[in-house]
C-alpha cells in the first residue's frame, strides 16, 4: 500500500462466504471493524468487488475459461447477499 498508494487501487474477491466478504470489504474501506490489527482505525477507502460482479469488464473468452464454472457453482441466494454487502461497503 505504501509502495503503490491507494489511488486507482481496488480489492477483488474470489470469496463466497458473505460474512468473510463483509469483514474484509469493510476493513479495506473503513478500517478494521474489530479495532485490532494493522488496519485498526485506518480508513483506506478502498472499494471491494467480487470478481463475478466484474463480468462485463472481462474479455468474454477469458471469462468463459476462468469463471464459467464458478458462475454456476455459487448459489443464487448467497450471490444476492454478497452483492448487497459489497454495495453497502462501497457506500453505493
Amino acid at each position: 500500500m505504501e509502495q503503490y498508494g491507494t489511488r486507482d487501487m481496488i480489492v477483488v474477491f474470489g470469496l463466497n462466504q458473505p460474512a468473510t466478504v463483509e469483514i474484509m470489504a469493510r476493513t479495506f474501506h473503513d478500517g478494521d471493524p474489530s479495532y485490532a490489527g494493522p488496519l485498526a482505525g485506518v480508513a483506506l477507502g478502498l472499494k471491494s468487488y467480487h470478481i463475478l460482479e466484474l463480468k462485463d469488464h472481462i474479455p468474454a473468452h477469458v471469462w468463459e475459461e476462468q469463471m464459467g464454472m464458478h458462475e454456476l457453482e455459487i448459489e443464487d441466494e448467497i450471490w444476492e447477499k454478497i452483492c448487497q454487502i459489497l454495495k453497502q461497503a462501497r457506500h453505493e
Binding site: 486507482d8 474470489g14 469463471m67
Partner: peptide, 17 residues
C-alpha cells in the same frame, strides 16, 4: 487499476481472478 486479489481454494482461486 492496481488490484489486490483474495481467493479461496474451495471457492475461486486468486490465480483465476
Amino acid at each position: 487499476k492496481k488490484t489486490i486479489v483474495f481467493g479461496e481454494r474451495d471457492e475461486i482461486s486468486a490465480t483465476a481472478t
